[in-house]
């Protein structure tokens, strides 16, 4: 484990849908909760009622928040204009109907609130953010740029400018892009990285990890005994690695578990990989 001051304030996990973002995010949160003494770990999730949410307590992760973007605008207005006024404006049909058709405002303000909760906390908190899949995560991050451009000045402008600068700061925020051994998932990871860089993120703050690798089976089973299904999988994976290899920071093996909690614990025990994620 790196020394404590090396921890970032927030770790974002994204990637194509179904790549295992939540599981790896949970694994890191679990690992940090048990090893980063003196720090609290706060897990942020985007999906309500997800199986990840139910695991937080059993895994010893102190806090968990489901990011509810439908509330974020009202909460922001309440913070800035007072409870009564904020609530009133947020619930008028005029305001809410406009907000309904531009979800990017809600995404952005919920992220702003999340960052504020981390920076305001008197404890040393590490946030782990199980973000939406990469397309919608880019929508979230892009919205900062859009509204900075639109607003030009004012309180909201200052707030989102500040949040954006923290998100872009490699000391504050690290983005772990999870991918699978498939062309689609790897293309999406690379594109996400490029897009983030074009939006002002530092390339070194964005790392790509391959999940569900079957490669390690090769060490245990002679090729003559390898069932054809797995040989084919491994063959495809090796092709992926020859095409995308240099961009991949680490490889998580496929682990067979029926139970999500066991899976998370096994992954979080892979200390070399966890160190890389940090």
């Amino acid at each position: 484990m790196k020394s404590q001051n090396k921890f970032k304030s927030i770790y974002c996990f994204t990637g194509k849908g179904g790549v295992g973002k939540s599981v790896i995010a949970l694994a890191l949160a679990h690992c940090l909760a048990t090893q980063a003494q003196g720090r609290k770990v706060h897990f942020f999730s985007w999906e309500a009622n997800s199986s990840a949410e139910k695991l937080l307590r059993p895994l010893g992760i102190n806090d968990g928040t489901i990011v509810d973007d439908s509330r974020s605008v009202i909460e922001y207005l309440q913070r800035k204009l007072g409870k009564i006024v904020g609530n009133w404006i947020g619930n008028t049909s005029f305001f809410s109907s406009v907000m309904q058709v531009v979800p990017s405002i809600r995404y952005m303000l919920s992220l702003e609130e999340m960052i504020k909760s981390l920076t305001d906390s008197s404890d040393k908190v590490i946030g782990v953010f199980d973000a939406p899949s990469s397309g919608h995560m880019l929508v979230m991050f892009k919205s900062f740029e859009s509204y900075i451009q639109i607003l030009k000045k004012g309180v909201v402008f200052e707030d989102i400018l500040h949040a954006q600068s923290l998100l872009r700061d490699p000391q504050f925020c690290k983005i772990n892009l999870i991918t699978l051994p498939s062309v689609f998932a790897c293309n999406e990871a690379l594109e996400t990285q490029e897009n983030l860089v074009s939006m002002g993120w530092k390339k070194k703050a964005i790392e790509i990890y391959l999940n569900q690798s079957f490669l390690s089976l090769k060490e245990n089973i002679p090729s003559t005994q390898m069932p054809s299904f797995f040989s084919k999988k491994i063959f495809l994976e090796e092709k992926i690695l020859s095409d995308f290899g240099p961009t991949i920071q680490g490889i998580f093996p496929y682990t067979a578990h029926q139970d999500l909690s066991e899976l998370v614990q096994e992954l979080s025990g892979m200390s070399n990989l966890m160190k890389l994620l940090i």
């Binding site: 089976l217 005994q225 797995f230 067979a256 029926q258």
Partner: peptide, 22 residues
Amino acid sequence: NNNLGKQAKNSKLNKIRNSLYD
């Protein structure tokens, strides 16, 4: 036959296999 490994001898492989099957 043998695509996924008939009675694979390797326990790791069996575990993965069973998990996919289940």
